[in-house]
Design a protein around this nucleic acid. Structure first.
Lengths: 208, 208
DNA sequence: TGTACATCAGTGAACGCGCGTTCACTGATGTAC
DNA sequence: TGTACATCAGTGAACGCGCGTTCACTGATGTAC
């Protein structure tokens, strides 16, 4: 039997470690600056007990990425069901930035570690973004005559751009609504440009 | 008299500190993971002497950004003079990725710290990118009827995309030429798409 | 030009601190009979 | 069901280490006269 009391308690502590790590990094500290003792302390266990869950801090970092992957995919699936994709670009992005704002720590973590000091973690995050891009490609409404290759290319660009703009969004002072608005509008313009570029470039080539 | 022997020696040590920092961070370590003692040791001075140059590691970080800003601007100016901008997109980007490869530490630093843990440094790097985008906007060859606002918008996107792709480029195994090639081609396609999007979107609006 | 004093980059020792890791342990929970 | 033993998440103490920062100092260089 695996689902016994002891096992469940272990999972709970593991999850606490993951969330403590996210909390302690906050908006300003990288994974590499986080200490094992800090995380253990915040989680209410003794430093030595950390090793019952992870071999070292890198393994914990990968677990954080894995945990957020799960969350992100769930959100994505729900957004698809709720029909958010079918809304106009402007409305979709408004929902997106609202979500970014409600999950500041998560997005700061992603933005920071996607280019951070640890290569394994960088690649894990990039892989996750690539997954999201593939999902998005499947859901995107594009003229039927646009080939799938183009759609995948464009959704990669969209995901990359959106993450980048989320990073800028999070650096704006919390109370500065005007600046938040500006970033939202800028993102809409960027994505629109990407859509137009895709469609026009393809149409041009097909006419030839 | 400012340009005395003592002052020049101080400048030299300061410059050594900056380069030691870049070297020690290498491809994998963030500014926040770098220790004052490491940098001092690598530079051949005693830890206490560090304080003759910088108040703390953050100030050193800002100096690194400032130093690379100077370098980057010089390169940009030379590229303009040499007419590299007038070459086809493909050739320009090939030169760009060659430059990225020759300055791996610099670009890894920029890529890492542009979203890194320290907000002052993030903003300093972003400001520098924005400067580069403005320069680029002035040099870019676009149809005369495209308004300056559009050109600035598009050069911002280009700079942002190019930096992002440089980050991916640096994570590819050094000997994997095929993959490097792929990233180059992908970047060309991305930028082409951005150009087409800009021109077509604007033309469309003007016809109405 | 020569002398006497000021400046200041770099020294070397010392400090208290939090770090990662090890170890034998405890005691609640699980398992075999 | 009851008992005897096994498992194992978490404990608490200890270790040696590198850290940032302070301080009084040194001695080469600069400046005023």
């Amino acid at each position: 039997m695996k689902l016994n009391q002891r096992y469940l308690q272990k999972l709970k502590t593991r999850s606490t470690l993951i969330h403590s790590a996210l909390k302690l990094m906050g908006e300003e500290k990288g994974l590499g600056e986080l200490s094992l003792r800090e995380v253990a302390g915040e989680s209410g266990i003794v430093p030595a007990a950390f090793y019952r869950h992870f071999k070292n801090m890198e393994e914990l970092g990968l677990a954080v990425v894995d945990d957020m992957s799960g969350k992100l995919r769930t959100i994505l699936r729900e957004a698809r069901k709720s029909g958010a994709y079918r809304a106009a670009l402007k409305e979709s992005l408004h929902l997106y930035f609202e979500y970014v704002n409600k999950n500041r720590l998560l997005f700061r973590f992603l933005s920071r570690e996607a280019t951070g000091g640890n290569k394994r973690i960088r690649l894990a995050i990039r892989k996750e973004m690539s997954f999201i891009a593939t999902e998005l490609a499947g859901d995107m409404r594009m003229p039927k005559w646009i080939p799938m290759g183009d759609i995948e290319f464009v959704s990669e660009m969209i995901v990359s751009n959106s993450f980048h703009m989320a990073g800028e969004y999070l650096d704006v002072d919390l109370s500065d609504h005007r600046e938040h608005q500006k970033i939202e509008i800028k993102t809409v313009k960027q994505l629109r440009l990407i859509f137009v570029g895709t469609i026009r470039a393809r149409r041009k080539r097909m006419k030839k």
